[in-house]
């Protein structure tokens, strides 16, 4: 009896800690989502009613509208850029053995290791130095932000596509070659279609990591040219109200949609 009681307490404690873990992870997102529909202007619980007005209000504020547009623009460039340079790099890493392969692979993965705030500091000073030497302005410009975000997204694309290439059966490619297809045709008609899920997932991941980035972009944005996450924290320094909750909710919806879509191509648990 006592043993059974102990087992029951153990099981309850186990389930309680699982519940607590997921409560911590999900509560902030659920809270901000909920508050964005409150009718009261100042956040108070329980709400006096519900409205969609704060979404319209958020869109009418320049900082948020421009921030949203800029984040989408950068996200798209980061996606295209990381695919254009990341897929060829993954092909080389997965299909060729050459000297320095490990070192190059480590270099391409380095944006995952260097903390955002450190990388941001370095890139900011680098851009200013380039400006002093060549008069080309990169800090606080779209090209400057885009370059930084392609770097941010690249390791995810390279990793997902390399992993997928390793799993591809090379006999299929060899069959195409024996049947007379040249290397370019084989790549285009056989190899790339086989790794399509990884390419799509790499692109979506690139968009997500670029869209949510805060620390690295912090240094590279300028007056009137702010990404959405930075517009959010700038606003949060002054106040927290349903309008900012509405903006955060929009980010939650975009990122969730992108990740649910990714999950259809490559299981998210295998992306890490």
């Amino acid at each position: 009896m006592a043993a059974r009681m102990r087992a029951l307490t153990g099981r309850t404690a186990f389930l309680a800690s699982v519940g607590l873990a997921y409560l911590l992870v999900l509560a902030p997102l659920i809270a901000v989502f909920w508050v964005s529909f409150f009718r009261n202007k100042i956040i108070a619980f329980p709400p006096q009613g519900y409205t969609l007005a704060w979404f319209a209000n958020a869109w009418s504020l320049d900082d948020f509208r421009n921030g949203f547009v800029l984040s989408v623009e950068i996200g798209i460039v980061a996606t295209i850029g990381s695919l254009l340079i990341g897929v060829p790099a993954a092909l080389a890493l997965a299909r060729h053995d050459f000297r320095g392969r490990e070192a190059i692979s480590a270099a391409l993965m380095s944006p995952l290791i260097v903390p955002g705030i450190v990388a941001g500091t370095a890139v900011y000073m680098f851009y200013i130095e380039i400006e002093t030497w060549t008069d080309v302005q990169l800090a606080a410009t779209l090209p400057g932000l885009c370059l930084a975000h392609v770097v941010l997204a690249l390791p995810w694309t390279v990793r997902l596509v390399t992993a997928s290439l390793v799993g591809v059966n090379r006999l299929v490619e060899e069959a195409a070659m024996t049947l007379g297809a040249g290397p370019a045709l084989t790549l285009w008609r056989v190899t790339l279609p086989m790794i399509r899920p990884a390419i799509v997932a790499g692109g979506l991941f690139s968009f997500v990591v670029s869209f949510v980035d805060l620390e690295k972009s912090l240094f590279l944005v300028g007056p009137g040219r702010t990404t959405l996450p930075i517009a959010i924290i700038n606003y949060l320094e002054w106040s927290i109200d349903p309008t900012i909750a509405a903006v955060a909710t929009i980010q939650i919806l975009i990122i969730s949609a992108a990740l649910l879509l990714t999950d259809r191509f490559v299981k998210l648990s295998r992306a890490f």
Partner: peptide
Amino acid sequence: LMTVVPLLMGNSVRTAGWMV
């Protein structure tokens, strides 16, 4: 999904949530 989506949600949104 409930683990990975919050992981990639970005710190600004999470911070807003904790302030709420």
